[in-house]
Design a binder for these strands. Structure first.
Length: 876
RNA sequence: GGGAGUUUAGCUCAGCUGGUUCAGAGCAUCUGCCUUACAAGCAGAGGGCCGGGGGUUCGAAUCCCUCAACUCCCA
């Protein structure tokens, strides 16, 4: 006999190996089948599996496995992302530990280290996904820096440049002084920070003005003071000059409606080099841009004072200096939002610099339209709102990064600085010669741009580039699998990634990259905190899998994961998953252990039970499919969970379980046994997408399978006939059984003690058909049909009365009280129904089926009241 | 400051276009059981003025208004 508790460790590796050996996850275009495709959101090459990945990838696997079983040509493409800034930061840190500075290395040397790092750690996360049971086609594993994908990025850059969609220009960007690179708007995290609002007086020959700023260290970069033209306080000063304290440079006082009259003093220092809004204001008024900061956030010689000091040190020091010079008016506490780098945490420095940009306005139009009209469906749809807002207010995308690890910008500069964009130096040289007639020019005269492209500039092509759609636009793969079906990802990267993939999809394939976008929530701990390494509140997924098994973790994660809503992780959920596995395991042990008799005939009760369960199965299956179609993953899982646990284990198996005589199970008839195995088979196929390992193990044990067969490729169940009558009968059966059990419980009678049941029914035949099952499930010694009264405790179902004779065990007063209570409730209910039906406006306005329903309720209530009154009368 | 979302049992959540035998599920709690597949189990039970207030309606958890709290996005 197999072990009493399910031990996932023993089987998981075995089956995964079996699946991959047999290439069940491999997919190639097959015109006879409908394609189903998901591309994985490529995890960082340096990353390790965390709980968010577990959730996300389990959902993708469930969808893929189900599609595969449904006979679709299912493909889940795996891969990793080079993660420019994150990886480079890690490699820099690793080198630093070895005592090597990045600045001491050539670009080529540094990249060699990056590739080494990638080879060493790049595969880890994909290996971890295998532990989870992920059914990816591993032969198709892609990496955003591999040659074909690299070339695709370069090709797209050149193409968009030639179309005029990419340009180079001075713009204010978010500068990360620690990583010494720009970061995109989306990579800036705003934080509320307690600051000091410093009031500084600027003196002039014709008056003085006081401004308020949180950045006093930038006064040396001021180009003007600005006031609102309507502000009466400053009318006289407009056009006059004042001197910047400490350095005594003169700046003009200008007027612009941009300035808020009631903020601070109503006078604003304008520092175009170090503030986005000031930059815009400066452009409007033709002000000088004076950059006083170095790339790593220190004051440079243009500041004249505090040169070489860090910006924050300088801030403190200058307040003291202003105090000494007498220009400090006052200092107030002030809370404001400060941008910080998502990668390094450093406070972002707005900085004017020469960068590459992509125009977003025109390109994003189809991407907006097709989401808003549900051509691409967001699940849940509430994310359409944020998407719309972002797309309508989209700004040009700064795509250059001052890093080495990534796709190097294919721009080449001639000695005079002229820029040529081409796929490579050779092409660039050709252009130089043709366009500029510089035939003497050689490759040596061209220098390539030092910067690389934003990581998202490669991942936005992912659904196409994994199929080599750029190198070979008409290949079979891209024609067959694109557009893909579902994308499963986190809302956090809706703009970073999803929106841009949609843009790229329309630009390069004229079609959406995926039909549905399922947005998962964030995995949080019980206190609602986001799981993170820093907090140490995230369990290691591999430990969990080792402890509970992959199927338990998968189901545990999905028990409570509404789309787009955060998931509050609790290990209890994983435990519940494990218990479910164990339940299935033991159900199989029970069935497997039965002795089968070829000779005994099928018990009518068992025959009925089989019919019932088949209907029940189909009904629940239909509901489950509906949940799947609506991407209600938790609900779909819960339907399967209760079908297996409650309906199959608690009900069905108890119904057909052979009797026990003398501590030994009697044999089961062959017919029921075979039917049960069929049911078990179907249940395993239904559950397989959720729990691939245990279902494979059991499925393989249900009967001898063909060589190289697997549940992975077995057909997913389809909805068959549903007999509502038998479902209704079994509802009543279960009510009777639980009433008897309740009575037992209340009277402290052992479930082992068989009791007699008397039924006073209008439709005797209905109960006769169920008699065997009633006796078995409720442990009834004998059923007697009566026309009138019978002794014992009674309960009423649908106007029929049931009586259990407990002999002297009955406390008449308690019984009376119970029956009276129920009678009161039913009478009250009847009254409200009558009131409704006698309300003319109700009868006039309500839909006919609603009224019919009310009539039925009334009739049921009346029958019940009658039966209850009779029961009470009997008690005297 | 602008926008979106959430608020239903102790917890996490379902409740579609209004119909009340719909206030539901899972978990947790409580009671009784080592019943011979499973104590990772079995059989039961309790628990909620559906955030507050107002309105529309014959009828509202479900629609409208308003207030409050929380969350997220953007500035």
């Amino acid at each position: 006999m197999i072990s009493k508790t399910y031990n996932p460790k023993e089987i998981e590796d075995k089956w995964y190996q079996y699946w991959t050996d047999n290439k069940y996850f491999k997919s190639t275009p097959n015109p006879d089948k409908e394609p189903y495709c998901i591309v994985i959101p490529p995890p960082n090459v340096t990353g390790v599996l965390h709980m968010g990945h577990m959730l996300n990838n389990t959902i993708q696997d469930v969808l893929t496995r189900k599609a595969r079983m449904e006979g679709k040509e299912a493909l889940w493409v795996p891969g990793t992302d080079h993660a420019s800034i994150a990886t480079e930061a890690k490699v820099v840190a690793m080198l630093k530990e070895k005592g090597i500075n990045k600045s001491d290395l050539t670009r080529e040397e540094f990249l060699k280290y990056c590739w080494e790092w990638t080879e060493k750690y790049g595969g880890i996360i994909l290996q971890q996904l295998r532990k989870l049971g992920a059914s990816c086609d591993w032969d198709r594993t892609r990496f955003t820096m591999e040659p074909n994908l690299y070339d695709a990025v370069i090709e797209v850059f050149v193409d968009l440049y030639n179309k005029g969609e990419i340009y180079r220009g001075y713009r204010m960007v978010n500068w990360d002084p620690q990583a010494k690179t720009t970061v995109s708007d989306e990579e800036v995290i705003m934080k509320d920070i307690q600051q000091k609002l410093v009031y500084i007086r600027y003196d002039g020959d014709e008056g003085s003005v006081t401004i308020a700023t949180v950045r006093p260290e930038t006064i040396m970069a001021d180009s003007a003071i600005c006031v609102n033209p309507a502000d009466e306080r400053y009318q006289d000063l407009i056009g006059k000059k004042v001197r910047i304290p400490l350095i005594n440079r003169e700046v003009k006082i200008i007027a612009d409606e941009y300035v808020t009259v009631d903020f601070g003093t109503g006078a604003l220092k304008v520092t175009p080099a170090h503030d986005q809004n000031d930059y815009t204001l400066g452009q409007k008024h033709g002000l000088a841009v004076i950059d006083i900061l170095t790339d790593d956030g220190k004051l440079n010689e243009k500041a004249q004072i505090l040169v070489g000091e860090d910006r924050f040190v300088a801030r403190k020091k200058i307040i003291k200096m202003l105090e000494e010079s007498g220009n400090l008016v006052k200092v107030e506490d002030y809370k404001s939002n400060v941008g910080t780098s998502e990668r390094t945490g450093a406070v972002i420095e707005p900085k004017v610099s020469l960068q590459w940009f992509m125009k977003m306005k025109d390109l994003s139009e189809p991407a907006l339209k097709n989401v808003m009209d549900d051509t691409i469906q967001f699940i849940p749809p509430k994310f359409k709102n944020t998407y719309k807002y972002w797309m309508e207010n989209v700004r040009d995308w700064c795509i250059s990064r001052q890093l080495w690890w990534g796709h190097r910008i294919p721009a080449f500069y001639m000695p005079d600085g002229t820029c040529i964009v081409a796929a490579n130096k050779k092409e660039a040289l050709k252009i130089a010669r043709n366009k500029y007639q510089l035939f003497a020019l050689s490759e040596h005269d061209l220098t390539q741009d030092e910067d690389v492209l934003d990581t998202w500039f490669s991942s936005w092509l992912w659904p196409m580039s994994v199929f080599d759609a750029f190198k070979n636009p008409d290949n079979e793969d891209i024609k067959y699998y694109y557009p893909t079906n579902d994308l499963v990802t986190a809302p956090e990267i809706l703009f970073f990634w999803v929106a841009r993939m949609i843009i790229a999809g329309y630009e390069y394939r004229g079609n959406y990259p995926f039909k549905n976008v399922y947005l998962t929530g964030i995995v949080r701990d019980k206190q609602g905190r986001k799981m993170s390494k820093q907090l140490g509140n995230s369990p290691d997924p591999l430990d969990l899998i080792a402890q509970y098994g992959a199927d338990s973790v998968r189901t545990g994660m999905l028990f409570s994961s509404p789309a787009g809503n955060d998931l509050l992780y609790d290990e209890k959920l994983i435990e519940q998953g494990r218990n479910f596995n164990n339940k299935i395991w033991n159900a199989f042990r029970l069935v497997e252990g039965w002795e089968v008799s070829e000779t005994i005939g099928q018990n009518p009760a068992s025959a009925k039970a089989v019919l019932w369960f088949q209907s029940k199965f189909n009904k629940v299956l239909a509901e489950t499919l509906d949940h799947y179609n609506k991407f209600r993953m938790s609900d779909a899982l819960m339907s399967t969970y209760t079908l297996i646990w409650d309906d199959f284990c608690s009900q069905y198996l108890e119904m057909i379980k052979p009797a026990y005589v003398d501590g030994k199970s009697l044999p089961i008839d062959k017919q029921t046994y075979e039917a049960t195995l069929e049911i078990f088979d179907a249940l395993m196929r239904l559950a397989h997408p959720w729990m691939p390992f245990i279902t494979e193990e059991i499925w393989q044990n249900i009967k001898t399978r063909k060589a190289n067969d697997s549940i992975c490729i077995a057909p997913f169940p389809t909805v068959g006939a549903i007999d509502e009558e038998i479902l209704g009968d079994f509802e009543i059966l279960s009510e009777i059984v639980s009433n008897v059990r309740n009575t037992r419980n209340a009277k402290q009678i052992s479930p082992k003690e068989a009791l007699p049941l008397a039924i006073k029914a209008t439709n005797k035949a209905r109960y006769e058909a169920l008699a065997g099952l009633i006796q078995k499930l409720a442990n009834i010694s004998a059923i007697q049909y009566v026309d009138d009264k019978a002794e014992g405790i009674s309960f009423v179902i649908k106007g029929d009365e049931f009586m259990i004779d407990l002999g002297s065990n009955v406390d008449v007063e308690t019984e009376k009280a119970n029956l009276t209570k129920e009678l009161d409730y039913t009478s009250g209910f009847k009254k409200s129904t009558e009131a409704k039906l006698s309300n003319e406006r109700f009868v006039q306005n309500a839909k006919p089926e609603i009224i019919e329903k009310e009539r039925q309720k009334l009739a049921d209530a009346e029958a019940k009241i009658k039966a209850l009154e009779e029961a009470l009368a009997k008690l005297g």
